[in-house]
Design a protein around this nucleic acid. Sequence first.
DNA 1: GCGTCCATAGTGGGATACCAATATGGACTC
DNA 2: GAGTCCATATTGGTATCCCACTATGGACGC
Lengths: 221, 221
Amino acid sequence: MPQMQDIQAKLRDMILSLDLGPGERLSERWLEAKFKGSRTPVRAALIRLEAEGLVQRDGRNWTVAPIDLGEIEALAEFREPLETTAIRLACQRADAADIDALEALLDSCGPGAPREEWHRVGTEFHVALARLSGNPFIVKAMQDIMTRLARPRWLEVWTEPTRDQAWVEHRRMLDMIRRNRPDEAVREAVEHIRDTRDRLLRSLREDKRGLKARGFAVISR
Amino acid sequence: MPQMQDIQAKLRDMILSLDLGPGERLSERWLEAKFKGSRTPVRAALIRLEAEGLVQRDGRNWTVAPIDLGEIEALAEFREPLETTAIRLACQRADAADIDALEALLDSCGPGAPREEWHRVGTEFHVALARLSGNPFIVKAMQDIMTRLARPRWLEVWTEPTRDQAWVEHRRMLDMIRRNRPDEAVREAVEHIRDTRDRLLRSLREDKRGLKARGFAVISR
DNA sequence: GCGTCCATAGTGGGATACCAATATGGACTC
DNA sequence: GAGTCCATATTGGTATCCCACTATGGACGC
């Protein structure tokens, strides 16, 4: 069992699940004890997680990346041209089976499913859609984006109407791709991206007090 | 003197300058001797350069990333929406001083300048343009793109007409941004990106024999 | 009390030691 | 001579060690 990848995966999970709070300091020694490995693989994992944006240097120290509202805006701006490009390419390149698979992914998450499932499927939908573009850089960028959005999405106040709205938006995007109507699919996507951004920002801003109470570092802008 | 960053920078330079051939195997021990450091900083540098796409794992080994013609196509596809978005944002956000600075950058490279200068200025132009978007993710992506394109650009057969063509295209893009005509600037950019892609692909394909003779790994597609 | 200063504990960066896995090369067999 | 097999060198992965630096906190002087 490769130790480094194991540590990297576990640490990533701890960060994404907010088991380690945003802004929290990480010492290599603490992590080495926590994972019962040595500092070498811990350091390798930290370097890689730094590239993912989940961990940062704060002077000489390692810290869990804070929640950054400005980053959420910048990500939406970055994501819009990428996801719309992915959609246009998918319209040209994806076959019916690809689209059926995506549909099945959406279907796999019904009203009774736990929140973790919705979260996972939502992420995977966008990455899989990017994959239909056939462009590895778009896929990589989308993975990166979804990783960085994972904690805000998880922290978002969770209501059925918003969940269903996102679900409907996903459906509509996919539908328009299936019918090979890229312009309309793109319009849906842009709307979805902006809706998501606004939802996340509003939710986080409203709960900023609660987040700080949990010791989470939040950068307002 | 920070050892790790030093090693990373030197190794990056050796790769980008083709001092280390594409596809060449890198052993940590050899690098440690080469840089008179120990394996710890060498490893940290390798991990970071892996994220930059300059170094890869080949099984358990490290290798210099090969020249990949498919990657050049994918990069152009990835770059188009990003650079056009950067231009539109720059039109909204950049002030005259920003644009003057970019113009000065282009002016800094006259007909008599050495090839290294043209190369550096060409790279910096696109990154600086991305910076005018104000979006750190676009900047980061553009840096990444230019890094990956650096070796193909360097290997391109070098003629004054092609050099001047790129120079004219840069000028026109900047001009249209200054006049706040984003659509035309975007049209120039798309043309420039496609021209560049075609030039690089043609040049590399024609010289593939020569590259292999130098021991360079080239992936055709 | 309030600064100031210094001993100390803890940190990340680097160097080194050890290990399992793998690649290598030469001897041996047929 | 060609193929096979095994001893050995070398590799990357991991575990420790050592060091310079720094943050901390308590004693001391005012």
